Amino acid sequence: MDEIRSILNEYGLQLEYAESVSDKVYKVYTNHGAFALKQLSANRNSRFTDQMIQLEKLGYRSFVPVYRTHSGQFLAGQDSFYYLMPWLHNDKKEERDQKHVHLFKETALMHKRTMKEIKINRTDVEKHYEDTKKKWEEQKLVYEKFVDRAEREWYLSPFELQAVTYFSETIQATDFASERLEQWYEAIKEKETTRLALTHGQISVHHFLYNDVGNGYFTNFEKAEFAPPINDLLLFYTRTFKTYPKTCSECADWYYTYHRNSPLLDEEVNLLLSYMAYPHYLFKVINRYQSEQNQNEKMECTELIKSYWQMKNTEPFVTQIHENEENRKRQEESSSS
């Protein structure tokens, strides 16, 4: 409490009461009202406010501002650093789907406002493609050899039985991802430029807050950076699908909310689908099981089935987007002929 009191003094505020909201966030009540005080993680970018200043210069203001101290700094503290923001809430009475619609629309608008083109380094593009392709082929081969050995055994361990059961579907997902990667490369190698946008780095309804009149604002720009616009979508969906088996029929709708407000290029769609479809987590579990001497069979089986669930949760989303893209291309071809 003394540390928080000292921090608030740098803003000319007197602490009356502090309420812990999470391990890093406090709701502080002061002589000038309530504020949100956030502790900056040691591994986060302490210059994240530069990105917020850039956003404002570009005319995008749908983010929660960070207050300056009396000395003009955005961060306060000595050993640990904190920053102060107005207190907003994320408990607006809306359906889950509607909150995500607002989130994806604002993400698209932020990307669109900050989008810029940079010249492609063909050597880097080719290296990324070849390295990724080689890695995926090697991981696929490791899995194939693992299954081949397991199938020659009289008795399979629980993990081996699961791995054999999931093999066919995993290889199909891998081949699909490789095909999309190939399509991305064929398109991008003909281009002179590619696009970057200011990405939030961790879009979530928990990082999208509302004021008293219902307007939504982004918060927590600690991972913000200029990167390919698909990065925000990739991280969001990877986290969303990393759970127990579930149907997310609205997930594609959220994607198209984004796409209507900031359309992705064909090569960007292919790269997104490629990364989404590739069962990285499952291959990681298979490799770890073979590498470690003293495996915990139960734990490894649990991790394997979780990775399988993630792959299967992702599949309907990726399939729907891909089929829609193929239908669109066919319609465009028939219209032009």
Rank of each mutant, 00 (worst) to 15 (best):
residue 278 Y to Q: 02
residue 230 I to E: 06
residue 163 A to M: 11
residue 295 Q to V: 15
residue 154 W to T: 12
residue 299 M to L: 13
residue 2 D to F: 08
residue 260 R to N: 02
residue 13 L to R: 05
residue 153 E to I: 06
residue 273 L to M: 11
residue 124 D to R: 14
residue 253 D to R: 11
residue 117 E to P: 00
residue 219 T to D: 04
residue 220 N to E: 11
residue 190 E to V: 04
residue 80 S to C: 02
residue 11 Y to R: 05
residue 33 G to K: 10
residue 89 H to I: 05
residue 109 L to S: 07
residue 240 T to W: 01
residue 132 T to A: 13
residue 39 Q to R: 15
residue 115 M to N: 05
residue 288 R to N: 09
residue 328 R to E: 09
residue 90 N to S: 15
residue 201 G to L: 04
residue 128 H to S: 13
residue 322 H to Q: 07
residue 297 E to S: 05
residue 171 I to M: 13
residue 53 I to K: 15
residue 291 S to P: 00
residue 281 Y to V: 08
residue 169 E to G: 10
residue 156 L to E: 02
residue 30 T to R: 13
residue 245 P to T: 04
residue 188 I to H: 11
residue 199 T to G: 06
residue 144 E to I: 12
residue 136 W to D: 10
residue 251 C to T: 01
residue 98 Q to D: 12
residue 73 Q to N: 14
residue 157 S to Q: 10
residue 28 V to K: 12
residue 10 E to C: 03
residue 257 T to D: 05
residue 304 L to S: 06
residue 227 A to K: 10
residue 331 Q to A: 13
residue 159 F to I: 03
residue 325 E to V: 06
residue 294 N to M: 08
residue 301 C to Q: 11
residue 197 A to V: 15
residue 40 L to A: 07
residue 2 D to Y: 09
residue 257 T to N: 04
residue 236 F to Q: 04
residue 178 S to D: 03
residue 113 R to P: 00
residue 46 S to W: 06
residue 169 E to I: 10
residue 138 E to F: 08
residue 217 Y to G: 03
residue 7 I to A: 08
residue 92 K to H: 05
residue 289 Y to T: 05
residue 246 K to N: 00
residue 179 E to I: 03
residue 116 K to R: 15
residue 182 E to M: 03
residue 157 S to A: 11
residue 146 F to L: 11
residue 185 Y to I: 04
residue 297 E to H: 04
residue 38 K to E: 05
residue 173 A to V: 02
residue 255 Y to E: 04
residue 162 Q to K: 14
residue 219 T to G: 09
residue 100 H to R: 12
residue 145 K to R: 15
